[in-house]
Design a protein around this nucleic acid. Sequence first.
DNA 1: TTGGTGACTAAAT
DNA 2: AATTTAGCCACCA
Length: 118
Amino acid sequence: MREGSRASDSDPVVDNRKQMLWQALASIPPGRVTSYGRLAQLAGLGRGARLVGRWLGQLPDGTALPWHRVLNSQGQLSLPADSPSGQEQYQRLMAEGVIIRNRRVNMARFGWPDESGT
DNA sequence: TTGGTGACTAAAT
DNA sequence: AATTTAGCCACCA
């Protein structure tokens, strides 16, 4: 059974991937934003964009990680506008100088990494 | 184990 | 621009 593979009960493989994610997340500079897919790529998760969203949701409230700088590929806030986290994300981004228009951010300007040169 | 879900994405229609 | 299809991977019933 299970061929020695276990998906729950402290899976070391999953835990390792989370560590990679936290590191990539912490690498996002203030005033910048990135997408779940981009972050997944940077964290070595390949196409695990959904994993990023899932794991970001499990972050503790007092985390120092800039989870609010992660948007979807369209540059929009994925969290519900009526949700506490959604409001906080909006406020935090504005506080960092990120311009949000109709719940959408100009990824060409605030997106990170920025190849065009800051 | 199977099947459905989700803070997602890219490509096709 | 909007909708549909398919892909990814962890979690839950």
